[in-house]
Design a protein around this nucleic acid. Structure first.
Length: 424
DNA sequence: TGGGGTTAT
DNA sequence: ATAACCC
């Protein structure tokens, strides 16, 4: 049957999108169950970045200012969520749980995952057929309340997908105490769109006959994942406002306006077509830590901010086990107009002698500060006045440590060519 | 509007 | 190094 799987390959996949409910707020409620049942918001600086459903019932919205939120809802409990450590840890527990079922798990942010369950579905379908059982029951909602045709193998496979999605959600609830939504469909785009149809803690499966209905019911093109702010603006100047507009727009004109690659991709998206694979995320490609503030305008302050960011960041890198080979400094300069676009960065290789010391936390910090201050001076002339509102440090280009250099013993012992590097 | 992430050019 | 996208 593996031949039939590869023959279908992208044609008949079963993809599930998992989307946790108000993730940061849920994590806080798991950490402190006394918060359950009360209106709760998670605060970063003067923004309520997310809140639980009790708070939403009382009018609190995501990304609302703390001032507005307190006015709407004086009983609102706020917890500070500027340190992402608990959320990041829980996020990876979710991904790892899903990876127990199947290796094809792709993360999107901290609170979403795609899982390609085509092979699991195929196995269960074969078991079902061999046991002569023709009864299959959908789990959760069917988009549009569409009738299931039990003679249609595509329907059957998606129904089996809905059962697997249900098992994912039950496992997340039982083992991590988390609730979330799931969407089941034939590609990533559609699974993501359909997961949001019934909203907290429910799931929905999309059958192919309702695909056009789902995508065309999006009230704006920016709701299509993959079509962001910039592309939306450019499409607007072309008179393209709705998904239907984009479907009907002449391909040749679109290609000249946006380039062939983007044009073809987003026009396919407008039809609900998405052949991008579920790419296993694996370990992170980068580790960064940032802080925003009202004002930072002297070199000394910059150095202090960097020294604040580094220890926890280095700790994360150390716990990962791999060694970063690139370091980057990012800044945001104050500007009253155009508030949201002005970031610049400089990056450089980390000197090899420093890379090797990356386990020895404190010895690495002051040379790194020196490197980061040099990067800073490449962006900012410190003889002129400046006004920063954000600093960020990022380690990337992570490489596995060669096994011959692992552990303090192996480093000092001469390796003989025969021993394959265990260091003993 | 925070504090993160990714890939493409 | 930036620009676009995602949460």
């Amino acid at each position: 049957h593996s031949k039939s799987v590869s023959a279908r390959n992208t044609a008949g996949r079963v993809i599930v999108h998992i989307d946790l409910d108000c993730f940061y707020a849920q994590v806080e409620m798991v950490r402190n169950p006394e918060l359950r049942g009360k209106p709760l918001g998670v605060q970063q600086k003067y923004i309520v970045v997310t809140c639980n459903y009790e708070a939403r019932k009382l009018g609190v919205k995501k990304l609302m200012s703390v001032k507005d939120a307190k006015e709407k809802c004086p009983q609102l409990i706020l917890v500070n969520g500027e340190d992402l450590t608990p959320y990041r840890e829980m996020s990876y527990k979710v991904t790892e749980l899903l990876e127990e079922f199947c290796p094809l798990v792709e993360r999107l942010g901290f609170d979403e995952n795609f899982v390609d369950i085509t092979e699991i579905v195929e196995k269960r379908l074969n078991q079902l057929q061999q046991s002569g059982c023709s009864r299959v029951c959908v789990s959760g909602h069917v988009y549009n309340n569409q009738d299931i045709n039990l003679h249609d193998t595509t329907h059957i496979r998606l129904v089996i997908g809905s059962q697997i999605a249900e098992e994912f959600r039950q496992a997340m609830r039982a083992r991590l105490g988390l609730t979330g939504c799931a969407g089941v469909a034939s590609n990533k785009l559609l699974s993501k769109l359909v997961s949001g149809i019934f909203k907290p803690n429910q799931q929905t499966v999309l059958l192919p006959e309702s695909c056009q209905d789902l995508i065309r019911n999006l009230d704006h093109i920016q709701k299509v994942p993959g079509i962001g702010y910039k592309t939306t603006k450019r499409l607007e100047t072309l008179g393209v406002r709705s998904v239907c507009d984009l479907q009907a727009f002449p391909s040749a004109v679109l290609e000249k306006e946006l380039g062939v690659s983007i044009a073809q991709r987003i026009q396919k998206l407008s039809y609900g077509e998405d052949d991008s694979p579920v790419t296993p995320s694996g370990p992170p490609q980068s580790f960064s830590d940032e802080d925003s503030f009202k004002k930072c305008s002297s070199e000394v302050e910059v150095k202090e901010k960097i020294e604040e960011l580094l220890p926890s960041l280095l700790d994360r890198v150390y716990k990962d086990g791999r060694q970063p080979h690139t370091v980057r400094l990012t800044i945001r300069q104050f500007s009253s107009t155009d508030k949201w676009f002005n970031r610049e960065s400089r990056q450089c290789p980390i000197p090899p002698h420093l890379i090797q010391k990356f386990g020895k936390e404190s010895s690495v910090i002051s040379p790194l500060v020196d490197i980061l201050m040099k990067l800073f001076r490449k962006m900012i002339n410190i003889n002129l006045p400046f006004h920063l509102t954000l600093l960020s440090v990022c380690f990337s280009n992570l490489k596995d440590v060669p096994s011959s250099k692992k552990g303090s013993i192996g480093f000092y012992l001469k390796q003989t060519p025969q021993t394959s590097g265990s260091g003993k």
